[in-house]
Design a protein around this nucleic acid. Structure first.
Lengths: 108, 108
DNA sequence: CGGTATCCTTTTAGATACTG
DNA sequence: CAGTATCTAAAAGGATACCG
């Protein structure tokens, strides 16, 4: 089995990786997993240290990959809610498994 | 639950991420998973497109994190063999689960 | 409130050349 | 064979300022 730099044979892995890779993707998914829905600024507060730029970019990526849903309500003040989609929720146990592995092997 | 930029509460996640993150870590682990032991240049051939620099760096990281083992044999020509450690092997099913998720949700 | 635009810094990976 | 050293390029993320 060969793995090309364009990752042809690892294409599903590359896709998964676009979803869980990146500095804030995992923390962001974790916060979303802990809330039915959550607003932009609440998300920003939970993710201590993230900038508006990065949060917006990360959300867009995740929405494009179909794991996050965005709902805007035409109220004043404007309200936007984010939540995990079905496939996003399927990812949660895997993320937990990864974190669990790290927990068991950190400094062992 | 809060997630700081220094990832205090996600420290195990950060550790896991140093292991599976990076462009070549996942492909490299996949090749190692498919072989009892494998030599440096064989690894380089399997990972089509990786440079010597990057392969060496990635291997060092993984060794430092305790998931890969390096054994050198004082022969002529020099022989060096790489293999997964126990904790490295424990990672394999998780990687497969991640790839499986990608497979199920790619273009869905 | 929920963003975008622009620019800048940091990180990551690749190219090339060379060594024990 | 199994790497290292040096430099360059590209990608990711952050700072600042501003808008509907």
């Amino acid at each position: 089995m060969k793995y090309d730099s364009d990752m042809q044979s690892l294409c599903p892995a590359a896709f998964s990786f676009q979803v869980i890779g990146g500095k804030w993707n995992l923390p962001l998914l974790a916060v979303l997993a802990g809330n039915e829905t959550i607003r932009y600024n609440a998300l920003k507060r939970e993710l201590n240290g993230i900038t508006a730029t990065t949060l917006a970019n990360t959300l867009k990526e995740l929405i494009a990959h179909g794991v996050v849903r965005r709902e805007a309500f035409a109220e004043v003040p404007l309200r936007v809610e984010y939540s995990l989609t079905e496939s996003g929720r399927e990812l949660v146990p895997l993320i937990e498994a990864i974190v669990g592995w790290g927990d068991r092997h950190l400094g062992k």
